[in-house]
């Protein structure tokens, strides 16, 4: 099965950090107050995507 991972649209991310508090694995962090960054720990649960007020996170399958 393809691995799923959150992908951040950096142009729309407002770096509010809602995603970081939604993530149970601390797999998403705000990079230097500019945009959110996803680490390899991400399992693609989409909690961050559903909470993101800017709708800047998508969950994509990577093969």
């Amino acid at each position: 099965m393809a691995k799923r991972k959150a992908v951040v649209d950096k142009t729309h991310c407002v770096a509010c950090g809602c995603c970081t508090s939604a993530c149970k694995l601390q797999a998403i962090t705000v990079f230097r107050g500019i945009y959110a960054q996803v680490s390899d720990r991400c399992v693609g649960c989409a909690k961050c995507a559903s909470i993101c007020p800017a709708d800047a996170i998508r969950v994509e399958s990577s093969t």
Binding site: V14, C16, C18, R32, G33, I51, C52, D55
Partner: peptide, 25 residues
Amino acid sequence: LYKPRAWCVCCPMGTMTQLVCKGHA
């Protein structure tokens, strides 16, 4: 109307601090 923290998207303080951070980086 939208997501709980929709204000964060257009919050002037958030926009300003993000601009400062962009300037640093």
